[in-house]
Every structure is written in structure tokens, then in C-alpha cells.
Design a protein around this nucleic acid. Structure first.
Ligand code: SF4
Ligand code: SF4
Lengths: 146, 146
DNA sequence: TTATATAAGACTAATTTAGTCGTATATTGG
DNA sequence: CCAATATACGACTAAATTAGTCTTATATAA
């Protein structure tokens, strides 16, 4: 039903949590997987892998050892929803032929919908690119930021 | 990866085929499941079920018996992509709590992303509502319509 | 009456997504 | 040094969804 997967939600929630923490407690910059897992009731091992992947892509920096955790490496304004979705959901691809390396769809030759779908696809992609994590924080979190 | 399911594609392809046939052969208004299945290499029993569902929702009318098949009941301008997506993919629901009857998501209480996601969701929904099957035909099929 | 079409529901297979487990490595602080 | 606590990472299992099949019934044209 046209939805993001759970890992994408966990990632956005985690980043969003770190963004707010920065606003509210600028002195406490580090956040452990355990902290987020406890707060939002996300299975710990799963969230850990999500954060590891975010670290691998450079969206957060990891700190090993006791009192370790993760720190945002970018300003929320510079992270788009599309960036995060890309990592866990892959590219927006309304039709599966949009992401396939090799066309296997037996309809492809005479397909009447792929071109107009591609336009729709781009419009949705643009929406995700234009929405930053700062926008997300701003919309539901204004009261908290002050 | 944010995609429509196969049945939605089959349905759109089928309707689109019927739309074009109307433009090109206004005298031949009936189209059988077999015809579409053969032309686009869609498994027949599956496509048959898709068309039956479209008939059930009133988007096409069915004609039993030899030389039977389906006929469009609406003008392409009056069918939106959202109508078809709704039938086979359900409502657009970027987050699963948007379609749940009962909130089961353990993150819901403190969730930081559901409100801004809802806005994104509406924008995408609007895109789908605003795209009609006539738009689809117009974009990749102009050459054929003349 | 036969051939061809839709109607509908139960069933199975394939794929994808979600979540778990085990082990290794790095760092802090006593 | 050493114990406690974190991340790193890959293999694995379970659950859910999606895709596709099979079977039987019914309607209609010729
Ligand atoms: S070719 Fe057409 S039917 Fe096949 S995946 Fe692309 S859009 Fe869908
Ligand atoms: S409450 Fe938040 S985490 Fe849960 S489904 Fe809704 S948007 Fe996703």
C-alpha cells in the first residue's frame, strides 16, 4: 500500500530524536542505540543495525566503547527524507522496471504506462528530496524547540 | 522501495489498453481478458481476477459468454490513478499507522515523525488523484491517438 | 448443445521484510 | 590490566505480503 519499511521509519525516528536533543541539550551530543531503543520501544538489535548502516553512509558518526553511541554529522537542514529512504528502501520506483538493472518485465515492450509512471515517480522523488529533517522537526516539534 | 503492486500495474495497463482501443476503434468497444493477457504477457487467471475486481468496483462492465469481455464505464478523464491504486494497493499510507483501524505501533505515543509524514502522505495522494487515465494516455500515446 | 467467456473462492509458491543470534572489536574507568 | 559497555557485522530464522494457480460454477452466442 505504498509505504516505507520499518527500518526507514526507525532511522528517521532515530535521527529526528538526535536532532531534537541537539536543540534541547546542545551539550549532550552523543546518543546510544540503547537510549533510542528504550525510548521508542524498537527491538534493540534491529535498531543497532539501522544505526550502523547510517554510520556506514556517513549520516552519523559512531563512537565505540563505554559512553559511546552516535552523533549527527550533518545539520538537519542538510539531510533529506530521500537520503534516508534511499538507504533502506532503495530508490523510489513505482514500477519495478525503474530500478531493474536488466529489464525482465514481460510487459515492457508494449507497456503503455511506464512513461507516464516515470513522471509521477519523479514528482514523488522530488517531494522526498525537498523535505529535510529540519522540516520534519519544525512541523511537529515547534513547541519543543523554543 | 515504494512501489505499486503487480495487480495495480495490470489493472492500469488493462484500462489504458481499453482507453486506446476506444480512440482507435470506436466501433469495437469490448475487450476480453484473453486479449489483454496475450498482448501484454500477463498470466491469464491473474488478469481475469483483476478485471473481475474492476468490474466489482464499477470501473468496467462485464459481458458474459462468447464474444464477451469488458467495457469501460467511465471516460478516461474521470478515472484517476488513485482510484485504481486504492483498489489493489489500498490507501496511500507511508506509515502503517495511517491505515490501521487500531494503533498497534509501539512507537506511536512519542513518535516524532507521524505528523510530518502525514503531510507528505497527503501530497502524494493528491498527485495520484490529480493524474487521470486520460493524462496517462496523453503522455505516452499522443502519436497513436491522432 | 457446444464453445467461449466471466465469477469467485480456496489454495500454493515465491518474495520481501522483520527480527534474532553469535562473535569480534573498541573504549572508558576502576 | 580488566571488567563493563558500546558498536560492527554477517549469518540465520520467522513472519507477512504478494504473486500466481486451480477448481468449479454460470452466462451467452452461434
Ligand atoms: S514495463 Fe510497464 S508493466 Fe513492466 S514494470 Fe515497467 S511499468 Fe510495470
Ligand atoms: S506511530 Fe510513528 S513509527 Fe509508528 S507507524 Fe506511525 S509513523 Fe511509523
Amino acid at each position: 500500500m505504498l509505504h516505507f519499511n520499518r527500518k526507514t521509519e526507525y532511522a528517521l525516528l532515530a535521527i529526528e530524536h538526535m536532532v531534537r536533543k541537539e536543540y534541547q541539550h546542545p551539550q549532550v551530543l552523543i546518543t546510544s542505540a540503547r537510549e533510542i531503543s528504550d525510548l521508542y520501544h524498537i527491538p534493540y538489535p534491529l535498531l543497532a543495525k539501522v544505526l550502523q548502516k547510517l554510520a556506514g553512509r556517513g549520516l552519523v558518526k559512531s563512537v565505540h566503547g563505554t559512553k559511546g553511541g552516535y552523533v549527527l554529522t550533518k545539520r538537519p537542514h542538510d539531510i533529506s527524507v530521500a537520503d534516508v529512504v534511499q538507504i533502506f528502501d532503495g530508490p523510489v520506483a513505482l514500477a519495478e522496471c525503474f530500478r531493474a538493472q536488466k529489464i525482465t518485465c514481460p510487459q515492457w515492450d508494449g507497456c503503455l504506462i511506464k512513461d507516464p509512471f516515470y513522471e509521477l515517480n519523479n514528482k514523488i522523488q522530488t517531494l522526498l528530496v525537498q523535505t529535510s529533517l529540519a522540516d520534519l522537526a519544525g512541523k511537529s516539534g515547534e513547541a519543543l524547540i523554543g
